[in-house]
Design a protein around this nucleic acid. Structure first.
Length: 483
RNA sequence: GGCCCGUUGGUCAAGCGGUUAAGACACCGGCCUCUCACGCCGGUAACACCAGUUCGAUUCUGGUACGGGUCACCA
């Protein structure tokens, strides 16, 4: 343990989209440092030339901005340990790799890709056999001068074990014989993740490495690297994986086949960043001494601790995300909700539709903004009428008595002085009383006539307010015709 | 296949030797009500299995089963 301030980092590779599992890793890494007043760094790991995606780092930066995960050092904000983009740090890796060669912890390997391929078994499993491990200095020199392509490999101990203590999983011990002589510097001169992340973490003063548990068994290799340099090893916090469930009910690492898995997909579907963050914070972590489920980022910073981290993988549940989102949507003040909903409604609704009122009706009925258009289809078009909708047992309505109600109410509505929910409701209630009918029966007839759909967001009078007088009357007339 | 990790209701999960084994989502009832939704009230449902340690195991140990991860010139 050191008494340095806690420094964590998020080190994604720029793939062009932010996987929700990566976002959760970023969140936990951020929370670990911020829960203890520490520092958080963003570093871009773009050492894979082939997978390079243009503009991909903007996606990362935008996501962090939208979720409120702010970094103290990194691209755009600078810092004393820059640059924070690995492709701009190549000379550093070269220098440290050479140090390791000099100290006997690494070596040049001239094996061809074909030879490496031949080492694999029928399942594609099989690692390097150490062919170039003991090349004489003369051979190395000769090959180098001949311009033979080479990589630099880390020389692993052949015997013994390597252990470290993980904050989540406890002591992890691996036989050194399981460790392959992995590549540190590729033939194109770029370093591999296995090597450069160690160099950067050390140089950037990272005290706690937070990452997914797919690294659990390769971490001893990194420990050995720290040891070879004589550096103090960081603390490790490996996180349980995020899983998805497919149609057959099988679980596997969360991926595209499970649905929208990137932060931007979710945002596009109308999920609020706060809700997404709140939900994923609870996938693999649980606060101590409270059953509270709602957390703002500030509250998460206060509540977070590594003890609450879980060891077992968590299945991403869209239903619960929806629930969180609907809760966050319901908490939005009406004006704020309208600011977002009205433009969506305006895309599909005629001018005379009261979008503000419609937005109000839809507010408590959606779990994501993408559901709005579908929900108001009965407003944007006149659906085919199914006269059986007029039949309702509880209110004792039938197509016949509904027609009677519609015919009676038409002149009443045409004579309405103003057109708002309260007025209309009073008017219809008075009519019901005068005919000794249940208000519900009157409302049912009108609601079906106007909406032409059984289930609607809002009641008869609310819908009439949405449609406005002219459209309402027109729809009622049509309904009478059809009956 | 070798190695590593994990296993509490359908899902997220609390629990850290003695509990009627929390809570949330989903689901099912009921109330409210101008349909639905919201809100409120209630309900169904779990310690993978087998040994061992112990007066006593969901909690500790070992094994089995199942699930996952990893063995790349990807991160």
């Amino acid at each position: 343990m050191s008494d340095k301030i806690i420094t964590t980092r998020f080190a994604p590779s720029p793939t062009g989209f932010m996987h929700i599992g990566n976002l959760r890793t970023a969140l936990y890494s951020y929370l670990l440092s911020k829960s203890q007043g520490g520092k958080f760094i963003l570093r871009i790991e773009d050492t894979d030339q082939e997978r390079h995606v243009e503009g991909a780092e903007d996606v990362i930066i935008d996501t962090l901005k939208m979720t409120g995960i702010d970094y103290d050092e990194g691209p755009g904000v600078g810092g004393e340990h820059g640059p924070y983009i690995q492709s701009q740090r190549l000379p550093i890796y070269k220098e440290y790799a050479e140090k390791l060669i000099a100290s006997g912890h690494a070596y040049y390997c001239f094996c061809t890709p074909e030879r490496l391929e031949s080492l694999k078994d029928d399942k594609g499993i099989g690692g390097y056999d150490g062919h170039c491990r003991d090349l004489s200095p003369e051979e190395v020199k000769k090959n180098l001068e001949a311009g033979i392509p080479y990589v630099i490999r880390q020389k692993m101990p052949l015997t013994g074990t390597t252990s470290y203590v993980d904050h989540v999983y406890g002591e992890v011990t691996i036989d050194n014989s399981e460790l392959r002589d992995q590549i540190m510097i590729k033939a194109d001169g770029y370093p591999t993740y296995n090597f450069c992340h160690v160099i950067d973490d050390y140089l950037m003063g990272v005290t706690h490495v937070v990452r997914g548990n797919e690294y659990l068994t390769s971490t001893p290799k990194y420990c050995l690297l720290y040891d070879a340099f004589g550096w103090e090893r960081p603390e490790y916090v490996h996180l349980p994986l995020l899983m998805g469930k497919d149609a057959e009910g099988n679980v596997s690492k969360l991926s595209k086949r499970h649905g929208a898995v990137s932060f931007q997909d979710l945002v596009k579907d109308g999920y609020l960043p706060e809700a997404i963050v709140n939900y994923i914070a609870l996938l693999g972590w649980c606060p101590k001494d409270t059953n509270e489920e709602f957390f703002t980022m500030d509250e998460l910073k206060k509540a977070f601790s590594m003890e609450g981290l879980s060891k077992s993988p968590a299945v991403f549940d869209y239903e619960k995300l929806k629930w969180f989102n609907s809760e966050y949507i319901k908490k939005l003040p009406a004006e704020v909700f309208a600011e977002r909903a009205v433009p969506i409604l305006s895309e599909v609704c005629a001018d005379y539709i009261n979008k503000e009122k419609l937005a109000e009706l839809v507010h408590t009925r959606i779990s994501a903004f993408c559901e709005i258009k579908d929900m108001v289809r009965f407003v944007t078009e006149r659906l085919d009428m199914d006269s059986s909708l007029y039949t309702n047992k509880k209110n004792k309505t039938t197509p016949e008595n509904c027609k009677e109600v519609l015919v009676d109410c038409l002149p009443i509505l045409e004579g309405a002085e103003s057109w708002d929910n309260d007025t209309l409701f009073t008017l219809l209630k008075e009519y019901a009383a005068s005919k000794e009918k249940k208000a519900g029966a009157v409302m049912w007839a009108i609601r079906i006539a106007v909406a032409r759909q059984g289930i609607t967001p809002g009641g008869a009078t609310e819908l009439m307010e949405v449609f406005g007088k002219e459209e309402t009357i027109s729809r009622i007339k049509q309904a009478i015709e059809e009956l």
